[in-house]
């Protein structure tokens, strides 16, 4: 048969999968990195992701413009992050418990208000065909890149630079590493953390819009299936570095495509095992890089689960 790639289909599918699947994971983990670098954990981003997917899809259905959907999803995510930030700014509030509550609230709200939007079809975000040079339809399809993926890469680079070399980045890091030092500098840690959580929420909302408006490209209640939670956990894997978030998201996206791709070339035994590959990989890396004698490298000092 023409166009039969044989085993080459597997690496191609992994590359294609990395490009298609990684974007929401990337956006959520970038948002969570930002929040955690300010010294707070927002576990609610799974809820924000689902809410972003719903509001983005609904807006696209109503206005006919997918980019308006992305904007509204970012806004909804920011508002949700703001709520988390404000609640956590009150005394003796545990940010993890609030995060779990926000996760349930976000998915609940999205399911409730999203009901009328399951059936109608929304316009998709456009893809940029970067594979036009190839005569193989498989390559052309794998290299259909969404603009949000490129924006995500740019955002990862920009965040890394901003955290390292700009004044707002320095302020965020100070607040995240030592509340006392931040106060001594005349900063308001609660305000800055709330802002960082809101911005992190906006990122997660955009990730949600990608899910519903591009890939898989429809709104239903099972759209996220836990990707938001996984992305939050990836931040530890990525050691709170935006650049590492990009690699981690690509790795997870590519590993997720491995199972279906192997089955499609005839490696059919043990597909449950291949589906577990990303998690085994994560576990391996975490064990390999952890140490009993020191804290996790790169962890913000104020980050704590007992606060």
């Amino acid at each position: 048969m023409e166009n039969d790639l044989g085993l080459w289909a597997v690496p191609l599918a992994v590359v294609g999968g990395a490009i298609r699947v990684s974007t929401p994971i990337l956006f959520v983990s970038l948002g969570e990195t930002l929040t955690e670098r300010s010294g707070r954990i927002n576990l609610g981003l799974e809820g924000t992701l689902v809410l972003g997917a719903m509001t983005g899809y609904a807006t696209a259905v109503l206005t006919g413009s997918p980019w308006a959907g992305v904007a509204v999803a970012a806004l909804a995510g920011a508002l949700f992050g703001l709520l988390h930030g404000l609640i956590c700014s009150m005394g003796r509030v545990n940010d993890i418990a609030v995060g779990i509550a926000m996760m349930l609230l976000g998915t609940g709200l999205a399911f409730y208000f999203g009901k009328p939007y399951i059936q109608p079809a929304a316009p998709d975000l456009p893809a940029i065909p970067l594979g036009g040079w190839s005569s193989l339809p498989q390559v052309r399809s794998a290299l259909n890149v969404n603009a949000l993926f490129l924006i995500g890469i740019a955002a990862a680079l920009a965040l890394a630079w901003a955290l390292r070399s700009t004044r707002p980045g320095l302020i965020l890091r100070v607040v995240g590493d030592s509340t006392d030092a931040a106060r001594a500098m005349g900063l308001n840690p609660a305000l800055i953390r709330t802002g960082a959580t809101a911005l992190g929420g906006a990122f997660a909302g955009i990730g949600g819009a990608y899910l519903s408006l591009y890939y898989p490209g429809s709104w239903n209640e099972g759209i996220s299936s836990g990707q938001g939670l996984m992305a939050v956990a990836l931040v530890i894997f990525a050691r709170w570095s935006p650049i590492n978030c990009l690699w981690a998201a690509l790795l997870f996206g590519g590993a997720g495509a491995l199972g279906p791709a192997l089955q499609s070339v005839g490696v059919t035994q043990g597909y449950y095992l291949f589906y577990a590959a990303p998690y085994v990989l994560t576990l391996g890396v975490l064990i390999a890089t952890s140490s009993p004698s020191r804290a996790l490298a790169g962890a913000p000092g104020e980050l704590s689960i007992t606060k």
């Binding site: 898989p216 495509a257 279906p260 597909y271």
Partner: peptide, 23 residues
Amino acid sequence: IFTGEWSLAVKEAEATHALVDAG
């Protein structure tokens, strides 16, 4: 291609891509 679950949107989409890629 088995996805392993009754409802897993992203994996179903990946499986469909893999099938089309396989011809």
